[in-house]
Nucleic acid binder design. Structure first.
Lengths: 194, 194
DNA sequence: TGCATTTGTTAACATAGGACAAGTGAATAT
DNA sequence: ATATTCACTTGTCCTATGTTAACAAATGCA
């Protein structure tokens, strides 16, 4: 049971037996097939997910019809559309399984209960929101100040599993460049080695 | 008193007399001189501000030492560093008055009280966070998919008062371009008119 | 198995925007 | 009034990245 990412994400060792049980029983195991949508534009997010296995991508379609990846999720990430989940507003994004996935789902109702009854749960939730807000700002700044290659290197550094498991075109749009550019960067890097 | 932006930001007409009084008396009027910092990197935000008069800029200094503007605030905007305010973590940004400013300040303690006692206040707060999160994502997407000129046009559309009151170089860094580029874009636009 | 589709690579060429530097004008200080 | 500074403009040149397109490789599907 220790390989359950809920343990990792909540440091469940530190909770009382009662609280640990409450949390574990609140999440529902759910599988997504490759290509399946966790959420589609226009829908309201009434749940969030913790990724136990597999890879997930969120993206949006902009005015010109471009598909822009906004994030990649891998274990033990939390897949959540903050605006939609908290404000019950329709989401602007698509969230799709890139591979078959195993996730733990928590619906909004149950979330509320945990949030109100467990201090530590509340703290973790806030911390996640804040981190995700900050990461977003950092990515945005990186798009402004860093060169394409630097942005790629940073991703390699921070989320190497993404590089291995997500298609080049998706990574390229996330990094704000076109596929041929990313391809060139990769070539250059491997070439520089030999 | 109706020219007080607190009325506008909270739609205070809709509150009970008691609540309205509570809110009005919770905010403290405070002036900032041009160039003064509302917040500096490393500090913890234990307050936020509503801008009654003047202009404010938030920015950060990246690894290479670049000054990157992250937002511009004008009446009746709310100046808040979400991560720092809610998590009591040191902020990564500078927030500085671009002109002499008149603001309404709310400290964290008092915020907590209002947040717990007034349902509508809570809702507004959440809505703001969500909107600011979404705006950030949209800006980030715009950096990826839009050309420099389009990004500028969008800002003209959405916050024309910024164009009028903020220096070119700051706007340029916010839009992810260099000052000469922005200058050329402006020229091209006015030139296209004559 | 083999065809079809998607994905990645590569190359030739085009271009937006950066780098740098000189010049202008307005604002503030002496 | 003159100097100094700052903010912006403008020119030239240059490079990173986009565009397009042809091809190759991998994957999915019949």
């Amino acid at each position: 049971m220790k390989d359950n990412i809920l343990y990792e994400n909540f440091s469940l060792e530190n909770y009382s037996d009662e609280e640990r049980q409450l949390i574990l029983s609140s999440f529902k195991k759910i599988n997504f097939k490759k290509g399946e949508f966790l959420l589609k534009e226009g829908q309201k997010a009434n749940a969030y997910w913790m990724v136990q296995e597999g890879f997930v991508r969120s993206y949006l379609i902009d005015f010109e019809g471009n598909d822009v990846s906004t994030y990649f999720y891998s274990p033990p990430d939390v897949v959540i559309d903050w605006p939609s989940f908290f404000m019950h507003t329709p989401t602007k994004e698509y969230i799709q399984a890139l591979t078959d996935c195993v996730c733990w789902e928590l619906d909004f109702e149950t979330f509320q209960q945990l949030f109100h009854s467990i201090e530590e749960f509340r703290e973790r939730g806030r911390a996640r929101l804040v981190k995700s807000y900050f990461d977003l700002k950092r990515h945005s700044t990186s798009l402004i100040t860093d060169q394409a290659k630097e942005r790629y290197l940073r991703l390699v550094e921070e989320k190497p599993e993404i590089i291995q498991n997500v298609s080049l075109k998706h990574i390229a749009s996330y990094l704000g460049m076109k596929a041929p550019s990313l391809s060139r960067i990769r070539k250059e890097m491997s070439g520089g080695n030999s």
